[in-house]
Amino acid sequence: MSGQNTALLARIGFVLALCLLLAISSSAFLTTNNLLNVLRQASLVFLIASGLTLVILTAGIDLSVGANVGLSACLCAVVLKASGSILLAVVAGLSCGAVIGLANSLFIVLLAIPPFIATYGMLWIVNGITYKLMSGTTIEGFPPGFRFIGSGYWLGIPVPIYLMLGFFAAGALFARHTRHGRELFAIGANPVAARLSGIPVRARLILVYTVCGAMAGLAGLVYLARLNSAEADIGDPMLLPAVAAVLVGGTSLFGGLGGLSGTLIGAVIVTLVLNGMNLMSVSTNWQPMITSIILLGAVLTDTLVRRHAEGAAK
């Protein structure tokens, strides 16, 4: 635990250093508006990354979260336009996300397909359905009641930030302070030992992939409400930042180590970097490349740390 706290403090220090750097290089950075903007963007990344964190804690992966965001958002938009009912649209979006996650888990648990293959296949299936659903159109203009969850303010703070903090609290509570949450760590550390300790591994995997899918669905709704328009490809750029946020946050791709506090900071770090580039008028075209470099750097660190730890234990 103390090691993890140190790592967390190091990351917070990194965030502060990054902020300092940005504040020096751009006068626009340290404005309330921009800081709220950063947090609002980070909240979107966090919502996706939070569910993904649980999955990665079990030594799994969900590559379909970006596509899931796209389909959930588009389906929500279609339902909203067709029925006019916000409630129905939200339920449709969320359950769409959850069903995608559930399908992932069934392929992984029942067919024993490796998670990265199953969820990668799902990525393209979901993408295909989304494009078919939208058939090249854009759906725009949603009622203010719906838009509130993405672009509304409460007490001067954007609503998505409340969502981020709320789900961070809930997620951290689940991961750290419930039996099921603790079991996820055990599964990630050693699935065989976990099973032989009486932990129902399959049931827990189904749970986390479904939750991960639902969280991606929620992110889709928030994103839709903020953009106020739905297009088939809106989820595409979401996967890399989300994976990067989880790994930068210190959750190990090999499972069993990490948590949501790290992911929260990871989401902020990734967003700060992208925001800083924005402030310095760097073209958005640079974003995928920078995100990938962050991702590869985080995986490299994770791998080296793990190898070092294994070497020390021998």
């Binding site: 890399l240 990938s292 590869l296 995986v299």
Partner: peptide
């Protein structure tokens, strides 16, 4: 390093 995440990273890199 796990192949899927390495090549996911280089996917983003090439795309970027």
């Amino acid at each position: 390093m796990p192949p899927f995440v390495v090549t996911l990273g280089t996917l983003g890199l090439a795309h970027g």
